[in-house]
């Protein structure tokens, strides 16, 4: 596992990257684009989470991929290359199978990208991004994120206290469990509401509600962020031009058809590859740089 230096970039860089790869991954059904995205997402998720990601990808994502690939032809009977007929009389076509495989790949890719997103775009980055546009709601988000772990801990305290007066949530039938759960939730609610009043006092005592509130952040848009952002923007533009030119379109029904591969297609493919692999490339570069510096010392 490599330490992910892409996470240390400015939230805007992180967010733009994920928005772009997620959107592109959801749109492009072309096998080359699908492949690039799937491989990049896989590599990055392994880089971020190590062995756990490999296990997760193989244990959950592979069966899901297969299941979805099979599911599609069962509902979709379009296409001209009929392979065989089901008992119900519906045909199974090659196109629908391939479409199933493609959309399954797409789905798995999106899930993988989101797993990377969850690891990189921590809540404070999100709150920073939206702190200026929606200050009220992003403050609420920050507060909820503060309260949830606190309430979860309190649930544990209450549940232990209840256990010690002879009411155990983990024992008894479903109704008894549910009843005890309700009691815990109820105690927690009162506790949360009553204690939150002091939180409100503390906010007002520190001037919340005065006009012209600003939004502070510890993130700085450094030079490396500028460079990365420019490169990323360039790549996105190339991919978008490619999209407009139809480089990424793929027709499945009635018969499979893609645009012919030209030099321009290769340029677009490369741009897309670099874009998707950007965090991986950055991480590897940092690693090499570090080793180089260390070796010089």
């Amino acid at each position: 596992m490599i330490i992910d230096s892409f996470s240390s970039f400015h939230p805007i860089v992180n967010f733009t990257y994920f928005s772009a790869v997620l959107l592109f991954s959801m749109f492009f059904m072309h096998p080359v684009f699908l492949g690039i995205s799937l491989v990049s997402a896989f590599v990055y998720s392994v880089m971020l989470k190590g062995k756990k990601a490999v296990k997760f990808n193989i244990l959950y994502m592979m069966p899901l991929l297969l299941f979805m690939a099979i599911l599609n032809p069962a509902f979709n009977h379009q296409g001209v290359t009929i392979l065989f007929y089901l008992k119900s009389g519906n045909p199974i076509t090659l196109e629908s199978i391939l479409f199933g495989v493609a959309s399954a790949c797409m789905f798995v890719t999106v899930i993988l990208w989101f797993s990377c997103y969850n690891a990189v775009m921590t809540s404070d980055k999100f709150i920073y991004l939206f702190g200026r546009i929606i200050p009220g709601l992003s403050l609420i988000l920050s507060m909820v994120l503060r309260f949830v772990p606190r309430y979860t801990a309190q649930i544990k305290v209450i549940s232990n206290a209840q256990k010690c007066v002879g009411r155990d949530v983990t024992q008894g039938n479903v109704i008894a469990k549910a009843r005890n759960g309700i009691k815990i939730l109820s105690i927690m609610t009162t506790w949360a509401l009553e204690n939150a009043i002091e939180t409100g006092d503390s906010m007002r005592a520190r001037g919340y509600g005065l006009p012209k509130r600003t939004s502070f952040s510890i993130f700085r848009f450094d030079n490396r962020d500028k460079v990365t952002f420019a490169v990323m923007a360039g790549l996105i533009v190339i991919v978008l031009i490619g999209a407009v030119m139809g480089e990424n379109t793929m027709r499945f029904f009635p018969s499979i058809k893609t645009i012919n591969t030209t030099i321009f297609s290769l340029v677009v493919y490369t741009a897309y590859f670099i874009l998707c692999m950007l965090p991986v490339i950055i991480n590897i570069m940092e690693e090499i740089k570090w080793k180089y510096i260390v070796s010089r010392i």
Binding site: S142, M143, R146, S202, R213, T214
Partner: peptide, 19 residues
Amino acid sequence: DNQIVTDKVWHELAFGLES
């Protein structure tokens, strides 16, 4: 516990100044 509004130490320090 009750007085802390936000989820990060640095954000809490800045809260009043933001206001």
